[in-house]
Design a protein around this nucleic acid. Structure first.
Length: 559
RNA sequence: UGGGGCGUGGCCAAGUGGUUAAGGCACGGGGUUUUGAUCUCCGCAUCCCAGGUUCGAAUCCUGGCGCCCCAGCCA
């Protein structure tokens, strides 16, 4: 008997390629890599790549996935990001064991390979200004023109490169370029830069270097050095692949990894680029990288998303080469599925109004048992105090209610969850007509929420005993943007579409007493959604809950 | 208008010449239910277009059309 989970592993075209490579004997074991640049926080788009790369490492025998920080640009990178990135990957449930690397680990080897290229007359030091380089490159329809420095001798190039390395020249004075073809239809092959001068200390190598390698050169060589078999990246690198292969072929590296491209993840009603997320953070539209409305992994974690849900989501969306915009409902479905199975239930009134049971004794109090999880008896029950004055949800009462409104209106009977049946008798309103109190009578024969006579009560509402309630702040989050594809609006700035109601703060929520001891797991507030303590702002004396996601609401749809 | 990709239902996505064209999400409807939740049952496409090859095409060929990416000394 094998009782291990038989969870179907979604396959994709990349796994098919790997299967074929293993079958043909091209590779004995698979090595992938996840190569973030430490210049910002990871988002759910990265999670897709992480699940793909680390997922392959998990599923194939003796396969591994390296974590590699692509730190070739000290002008943009900070070591602070490294720990955050590691934390996010770990939180998602993946490990890299002792395979955490930095591209900067290979700077010496990279340089030696560059020298080799020069010696093969496949690279040269160019002294054109940045502006001239651009002008010489041509454009999409016109070929470029050779730089006047393209014909320098190997000796001169070696000398110049060495002096670039030792910091003899100013930034921008020279650049090492591959000698390929200035007329190539693929712009990437028009003598791309290999090294540029940057008089800048590097987080890992300090002030050792004055030149830093470019992505196209560093990435393929690093992959080769690490023995990566399949180098998975996103679609925009597709026309870099000829260059990736050119470098490795010219350098005759011991290994020649295969670059395979897949489409990046796009989610509707949000943005997914580091630059745009940075803009939202910098301009104060959200409160930091871990704002619960952001699709960053740190924001989602704070919001209450589970790693399980994100992994499940990634397996559901698949991996292809097609541009896509995934609907938020797919993510929410993965989330609800996970949360529903594990979240303990609780009663919480977010928008309270008093419900007074006129025929319930003034000073009486009793304790009722609430089921912690309807599908899991092992979760047990908890005590919930009940008394004459309760809080119920304002929206659970309506003056002129339609027949299909299964809640309170004068003359209608509902069940108070786990408690009694109550029938609404009248309401009290203030001068402006707002309901301030709902009055009702209860049926003592319905304790626990069931009646002997088999009478049907269609509606069940949640409540909290006023004198026992815990007051807390609850933050309700909604989509960050008002349109599905804010970045697709070419003529307008995506920030114009920010949803100004994306974060609603309710300061006077009334929670059942047991929530006073809430821990860090997610709870389902019955009939409302899933909530968890805010890891940043919640304090023992003043609880703050985040709404992770609402429950499905078919009644709301009908209305 | 150079080069590289992509085009299967509202959104994803299987499918690789013979299947009633998987599955998920969404949507619509029925049942169960002390959460209008969960669970459950049912419904929901002829494959961008046009020709062609073939007994037979989403799958092969030809020609269109549409969308995305590339002119950083960013990654």
């Amino acid at each position: 008997m094998n009782d291990s989970s038989t969870e179907p592993q979604s396959t994709n075209f990349i796994r098919s390629i790997i299967d074929a490579d293993l079958a043909s004997g091209k590779h004995k074991k698979v090595i992938t890599r996840f190569p973030p640049e430490p210049n910002g926080y990871l988002h759910i788009g990265h999670a897709k790549s992480i699940c793909l790369n680390f997922g392959i490492a998990q599923d194939y025998p003796s396969a591994v996935c390296h974590l590699r920080f692509d730190d070739t640009n000290p002008g943009k990178e900070k070591s602070e990001y490294i720990d955050a990135i590691k934390e996010d990957v770990r939180w998602l449930g993946f490990s890299w064991d002792d395979n955490s690397h930095h591209t900067s680990d290979y700077f010496d080897q990279l340089y030696a390979y560059a020298v080799q290229l020069v010696k093969q007359d496949k690279a040269y030091v160019d002294s054109l200004s940045a502006a001239d380089t651009k002008a010489y490159r041509g454009n999409l329809t016109e070929p470029g023109i050779d730089s006047p420095f393209r014909g320098r001798s190997i000796e001169e190039n070696i000398d110049l490169l060495e002096r670039m390395k030792t910091g003899e020249f100013a930034e921008g004075e020279h650049v090492l370029r591959a000698k390929i073809d200035m007329a190539a239809p693929n712009m990437n092959m028009r003598d791309p830069a290999i090294y540029r001068i940057k008089h800048m200390a590097h987080p890992m190598t300090g002030d050792k270097w004055h030149i830093y390698p470019m992505y196209d050169f560093a990435h393929c060589v690093s992959d080769a050095i690490e023995g990566i078999t399949h180098s998975l990246c996103t679609l925009e690198f597709e026309d870099h692949r000829p260059l990736y292969d050119w470098f490795l072929d010219e350098l005759k590296t011991p290994a020649h990894p295969q670059q395979i491209e897949f489409s990046r993840l796009n989610l509707d009603y949000t943005v997914m680029s580091k630059r745009k997320l940075y803009e939202l953070v910098e301009d104060g539209h959200v409160h930091g990288w871990n704002d619960p409305r952001l699709p960053t992994l740190s924001g989602m974690r704070r919001r209450g998303y589970t790693a399980n849900a994100i992994r499940d989501f990634c397996s559901r969306i698949g991996v292809t080469k097609k541009d896509n915009i995934i609907e938020m409902s797919v993510l929410e479905n993965s989330l609800r599925e996970d949360l529903n199975s594990v979240a303990p239930r609780a009663l919480a009134v977010l928008d309270p109004i008093k419900l007074i049971i006129d025929n319930y004794p003034e000073d009486q109090e009793e304790t009722l048992a609430g089921v912690n999880h309807p599908k899991n008896p092992d979760a047990g029950t908890r005590d919930i105090p009940f008394s004459k004055t309760l809080y119920i949800e304002l929206s659970d009462y309506m003056d002129d209610a339609p027949k299909k409104f299964f809640r309170l209106t004068v003359g209608r009977e509902v069940r108070l969850r786990f408690a009694y049946y109550v029938t609404c008798t009248h309401v009290v309103k203030d001068d402006s007509g707002n309901v301030t109190e709902v009055h009702c009578r209860y049926d003592p024969e319905t304790r626990g929420g069931k009646s002997e006579d088999g009478r049907k009560v269609k509606g069940t509402i949640h409540w909290v005993s006023a004198q026992h309630a815990v007051t807390a702040e609850v933050r309700l989050y909604d989509r960050l943007f008002t349109i599905p594809a804010p970045v697709a609006e070419k003529e307008r700035d995506f920030k114009e579409f920010i949803n100004i109601d994306s974060a609603q703060v309710l300061a006077n929520c009334q929670l059942e007493a047991s929530l006073l001891n809430a821990n860090t797991t997610a709870y389902q507030f019955e009939r409302q959604g899933y909530f968890c303590l805010d890891s940043v702002d919640s304090k023992p004396g003043s609880l703050v809950f985040n709404r992770i996601v609402t429950l499905r609401d078919s009644w709301a749809k009908k209305k």
